[in-house]
């Protein structure tokens, strides 16, 4: 299943955030959207997941305009995890993860064998099997985020979109979450699209980076090819020196305002 945008213009009221965006998300790859605060990367992600209506243009999922498709059918092909979502804190891990099966269920078919197997799989994949009966209030930030990812996994979609999934997490959990996403991409060929703040982590985990600046796509491609000192300077408005990461051989940016502190 391919997802792409054609001449997409997005905004709120009269205010245009992004204009004439044409991007194609590469299949079975990890794509990371980067840009400074308020550049519209989250808006773009939400629109691709049909959460926001564009002012003009289309999002094409498969061969259809996403707004022409029944929402439940989309939910079987594309999952979205919004930024820091909220749920009643006395729900158990299992209670929440099983909601991912919603698009496959009906009021008289609430828990098929398939639902059970897939929720078990999602819990196992995210390392939550042992704490499935714990309440959300008892979990750490990293565990909570894994619960949400497990819920999107239970949707069994080829495409997963995530809006800042590492926000407010300690560095340990940031890496844990991104490792999990990379793993899902490599082991199960899922197409993953992430909005991420941290350019260095983006370079490490992305197969494809889309950099957004002034309502347009500034550059897109393999981070090793497109991430340059000029790109960092233009997109993030900060000076940078780029070196090769000694561990992952990906670009690493050392950013600075002035050379004297």
């Amino acid at each position: 299943m391919n997802i792409s945008t054609s001449n997409l213009t997005l905004g709120y009221g009269d205010f245009i955030v992004l204009k004439d965006i044409n991007v194609t998300i590469p299949k079975n790859k990890v794509t990371i959207l980067v840009g400074s605060n308020g550049c519209g990367k989250s808006t773009l992600l939400k629109t691709m997941a049909r959460l926001l209506k564009p002012m003009s243009g289309k999002v094409v999922l498969g061969d259809m305009d996403i707004f022409q498709k029944p929402s439940k059918e989309i939910a079987k092909e594309l999952a979205i995890l919004t930024q820091s979502p909220d749920a009643p804190s006395d729900l158990t891990v299992f209670n929440l993860v099983k909601q991912g099966r919603y698009p496959y269920q009906s009021w008289f078919n609430q828990w098929s064998k398939e639902d059970e197997n897939i929720v078990d799989y999602a819990l196992e994949k995210t390392g939550l099997s042992d704490i499935r009966d714990k309440k959300l209030s008892e979990l750490s930030g990293g565990q909570k985020q894994r619960v949400w990812i497990a819920m999107t996994l239970a949707q069994q979609t080829e495409i997963i979109l995530l809006d800042e999934p590492t926000n407010h997490l300690d560095i340990k959990y940031k890496i844990e979450v991104l490792d999990l996403l990379k793993h899902l991409n490599q082991q199960e060929n899922r197409t993953i699209v992430v909005v991420l703040h941290d350019i260095n982590l983006a370079c490490r985990y992305a197969d494809h980076i889309i950099a957004i600046k002034d309502g347009k796509v500034y550059a897109e491609g393999d981070p090793k090819e497109i991430v340059t000192e000029k790109l960092i300077n233009d997109v993030f408005d900060i000076n940078a020196k780029i070196i090769e990461c000694p561990l992952f051989k990906t670009p690493m940016c050392i950013t600075y305002q002035n050379l004297t502190i």
Partner: peptide, 13 residues
Amino acid sequence: NLDDGISVGLGSS
């Protein structure tokens, strides 16, 4: 009872 974004994402009207 979940966030609206999550509800729409799950395919609920």
